[in-house]
Design a protein around this nucleic acid. Structure first.
Lengths: 247, 247
DNA sequence: GCAAAAGTGTTCCGACTACACCCATGA
DNA sequence: TCATGGGTGTAGTCGGAACACTTTTGC
C-alpha cells in the first residue's frame, strides 16, 4: 500500500546509531596502554552500497519510539546494549541515499569495555578505530565525524565519560578516558581537582595496585548520571530531549 | 514504494519550526520599552486538535531537504523568511499524535522585528508571547519550552542574537536583546567589554539619538555570522549539522 | 635507593563581577 | 542644572593552567 499518491515519492525513516567504546589495543595486537576510540560497523548485504561498512540501524517500527528503535537495531545487529544513548541529529538531504529518499534519525551511544567485548563480532560486524575508518556507505563518514565532535565537546562539561567505565575506577583511568577522547594530555593534579569539585565522586576505600608505584584510590559515582537523554517533566520513559544537552 | 505492509503502520514525517522574534509591546498595546519574546502560531483547521494553535509546519516533500521544508512551510503559513534556522530535535514518541504515527523534525528560527511585522497575521495566524502560551496541539508546548531553553543557552556563547536585530544597532539595543532572552539585567559596562572582546563588531561612525541623554554609537557586525546551520566541508547549500551547535 | 605513578600545594593569569565615576544630551 | 542613559576605570573573585613538591609502592 503506497504511502503517498506517487509510490516513488514516499520518504522512509531509518534510525542509526554511532556507538563508541574505548579499547586498549591498537587493532594489531599491541596493548600499549593508551586507550583509543573504536566503533562497531556492520557490513551491508544489499544495494545500495552492498558490501560497504555502515552504521548499525534500520527502519523505524510504527510502534516503537525513536530511542527504542535505536536500542533494538543495535541489539539485533551488534548485540550491544549501550549505557548512554542520546539523539544526535536528523540527516535528510535529498540525495544522501541512492535509490530512495531516506531520513535518518541518528543517535550516539557509549558502551563500557566489558560490554564492548560482548559484541557479536563476525563476518558482518567489526570494530574500527574512529580515526581510521574506511569509506562508509551513504553519508556515514560525515555522521561519524559529527558524532565525534559532539563526543569531544560534551566530555568536557558532562559526566557522560562514566558510561565508558566500569562501576569503580581510579582517577587515572577516568583521566585516560578524557585524554583518549580529547586526544591530548591532561594535568593529573588539575584533573583531580576539577572532578572532585563537581562532588559527584566518592571514594570506595579500596585501592588498585598496578606496577611499581603507589596504589590508587578507587572511586565510584555517587550521584545519578546527569539526565542525558532523560525527559522534561512530561514523558519519563520515552524519548525527549535533555534540558540542554547541546551547546 | 510502500512504507510498510500495513498502511496504518506507516510513519509520517512532518517538519515544524519554532520561530522567535522580539516585540516591544505587551500585546495589549503598551510599548513599555523592554522587548519580549514572541512566536507565531497557526490555527489547525482539521482533526486532530481542530481549532487549536500549533507550530507552523507541514509534511516533508520528497524532493526537498529538511531545512528547505522548514523554510517552505514557514513561508506558506506565516509568510516569514527567517534570518537564522537550525535543527532543534526530532520528536518521535509513539503517542504524540492521536490518529497516526508522526515523527516531527523540528527547527528553530529567528526573525528580526521588521520581518516579524511582515507576517501574514489573520484569522489563522497570530503572535503569542512565548511565556504565556495557550494549550497547544500535540506536544507543541513541550517543544516550545525546549526551543526556549536552547535559545537561552545559545545566546550566551554565539552571535545568534544578531538575527533578531537590523543591520546597525546600538550596544544598548543588543544588550536588551540578550536581556529579553535571558530574562535578567546585564551590566552595561561588562556587556560592552564582552562583546567587543569578541572583535566581531565595528562602529559605523553614526550615532543614534533617543531621549534626553548622550547619543549612542551605532555598530554593525563585521564578521560573517557564526556558521550556525552551515555545513561541514561537504554540502554547502543543504542541511547539515553545525560543527558544534549544541552543548 | 631508584623509578614511577599517586596525590598535595602554590602561583600566575585571564575572565567575569560589581560598582564608582565621567560624558553628552534634551528639557 | 538636572535627569538619563552612554561610556570608562578599577578592584575583587573565581577557575583554570602550570609546575614544584611529597608520598607510596615494586624492584
Amino acid at each position: 500500500m503506497a504511502a503517498s499518491p506517487h509510490a516513488d515519492e514516499a520518504v522512509a525513516i531509518a534510525v542509526s546509531t554511532v556507538i563508541f567504546a574505548l579499547r586498549q589495543d591498537d587493532g594489531i595486537g599491541a596493548a600499549n596502554g593508551d586507550p583509543t576510540i573504536w566503533l562497531p560497523l556492520v557490513r551491508r548485504i544489499r544495494e545500495p552500497f552492498d558490501g560497504s561498512w555502515a552504521l548499525p540501524g534500520g527502519p523505524l517500527d510504527a510502534h516503537e519510539s525513536l530511542a527504542d528503535a535505536a536500542r533494538r537495531s543495535l541489539a539485533e545487529t551488534t548485540g550491544l546494549a549501550p549505557r548512554y544513548l542520546e539523539q544526535l541529529y536528523a540527516f535528510g538531504d535529498v540525495d544522501r541515499s541512492p535509490g530512495g529518499r531516506v531520513v535518518s534519525i541518528v543517535y550516539w551511544a557509549l558502551v563500557d569495555s566489558a560490554e564492548a567485548r560482548r559484541a557479536l563480532v563476525g563476518q558482518n560486524v567489526r570494530w574500527f578505530p574512529a580515526d581510521r575508518l574506511p569509506r562508509l556507505a551513504f553519508d556515514h563518514n560525515e555522521i561519524v565525524a559529527y558524532a565525534l565532535g559532539r563526543l569531544r565537546t560534551k566530555v568536557e562539561y558532562s559526566d557522560m565519560a562514566r558510561a565508558l567505565l566500569g562501576e569503580t575506577f581510579t582517577l587515572t583511568e577516568l583521566r585516560s578516558v578524557h585524554e583518549a577522547i580529547l586526544q591530548r594530555r591532561l594535568d593529573p593534579a588539575n584533573f583531580r581537582r576539577q572532578v572532585d569539585a563537581h562532588g559527584q565522586l566518592e571514594a570506595t576505600g579500596e585501592m588498585r595496585r598496578t606496577g611499581a608505584h603507589r596504589p590508587a584510590r578507587l572511586y565510584r559515582y555517587a550521584a545519578a548520571p546527569a539526565p542525558a537523554p532523560a525527559a522534561p517533566p512530561s514523558s519519563p520513559t520515552s524519548s525527549s530531549p535533555t534540558k540542554e544537552t547541546t551547546r
